[in-house]
Design a protein around this nucleic acid. Structure first.
Lengths: 92, 92
DNA sequence: GATGAATTTAGATGGTTGGCTAAATATTTC
DNA sequence: GAAATATTTAGCCAACCATCTAAATTCATC
């Protein structure tokens, strides 16, 4: 599992905003895209990055594609960050 | 305060490793640099990025420069990430 | 199965980044 | 204050990234 991909994904503010949206509720790709002032294709690219990182998942739903936050992977990232400080000892 | 800088800083694996080291104990720049297979100057660059992001602080100590984790800023990042999911509501 | 809507993929481009070496700066020691 | 050590800054380059427009894909509908 590539933690690196998740952190790279989190490095972009638009992607963090997308995650914030998805944390509230699942959304179709178009619903997400229309909330940003950039091209749909660009948002699609961001969604791809988030998906590759495992931070979001998607399912086709008829003519739309629904995205949702993958809380498991997301929490992994949070847990890693917390362990860095809480640890004090050796741990991956 | 630029949260963006912190996330950009976290995007690089070498910088995350530096943070892991500093979470255990403060270290001189040279002590940090010698743990990585890249040039001292490159590590120095990473330290600069981490410092600009506020994630680490440094103080000169004689001929050395001591680096330490800025736990306040670090925890801010962790808290932000937790709030995204725990929130369910609106919060910066 | 052609038309239209939703979404992704492809290809191009300018900006950013991480690495390098070499030079500069700061501090201690002689 | 010159020599030695510690660290950063400067300048360069290849790789990567965010964005764009245009084309392709996928599904629904007529």
């Amino acid at each position: 599992m590539s933690r690196d991909g998740a952190f790279k994904a989190l490095a972009d503010p638009t992607r963090r905003e997308i995650l914030e949206l998805l944390a509230q509720k699942d959304l179709m790709a178009g619903e997400i895209a229309e909330r940003f002032p950039i091209a749909f294709a660009s948002v699609s690219h961001h969604l791809g990055v988030l998906k590759d990182a495992g931070l979001v998942a998607s399912e086709r739903e008829g003519q739309f594609i629904r995205y949702r936050l993958n809380t498991t992977v997301y929490q992994d990232v949070v847990r890693y960050l917390m362990n860095v400080t809480k640890g004090g000892g050796r741990r991956a």
